[in-house]
């Protein structure tokens, strides 16, 4: 994978949160909604995406929090951990779809599971990509950027 951060990462820019369900999709890749119960991973992801990638990250520690805050945040991409207490990643995605048009945003699952059968289950939920833990934090922003671009191309040329 290319590790060229400058080319793929958008400049840091905080836009005002939207209130309506069908939040407008920005033309640039800026906001990432990250749902993860492990504080260490949250911290690492924030450094990787914000410090190295220049992106904006809304970190949620559990599913309900994400459902609550996502519409206002209007993320450009959803990064969901799979295994979480109470509400797991896939369930969170289903619930999110009730308050956010998830079909217009790339969804990326992050998991420690390496079995392809599991991965297929996530793709069946319209996930755009699955990132296996342990992941490369240095290249994470660039990887998400590529995923977002690919998603946009598909959106424009279905």
């Amino acid at each position: 994978m290319a590790n060229n951060i400058e080319n793929t990462a958008a400049p840091f820019a905080q836009s005002p949160p939207e209130q309506d369900l069908a939040a407008p999709i920005t033309a640039t890749f800026q906001r990432v909604l990250h749902v993860e119960d492990d504080e260490s991973i949250i911290a690492i992801t924030r450094v990787a995406l914000e410090t190295l990638g220049g992106l904006s990250v809304l970190s949620c520690s559990y599913g309900e929090q994400a459902i609550e805050q996502a519409p206002a945040y209007a993320p450009d991409l959803l990064l969901l951990d799979v295994m979480m207490p109470d509400m797991d990643g896939p369930t969170t995605l289903i619930e999110l779809s009730k308050v956010l048009d998830v079909s217009r945003r790339p969804v990326v699952f992050m998991t420690a599971k390496t079995e392809e059968a599991d991965h297929q289950r996530y793709f069946d939920l319209n996930a755009s990509a699955v990132i296996v833990k342990p992941f490369d934090p240095v290249g994470l922003a660039a990887r998400l950027g590529t995923i977002w671009e690919d998603f946009q191309k598909q959106e424009n040329n279905p």
């Binding site: 492990d38 260490s40 911290a43 690492i44 190295l52 833990k133 490369d136 934090p137």
Partner: peptide
Amino acid sequence: HELRTPLTSIKGALDLINAGA
């Protein structure tokens, strides 16, 4: 499997530090 999660954090943290982040 359970080892992977803490490993992800440790490795991630170290990778970021060594990358000068």
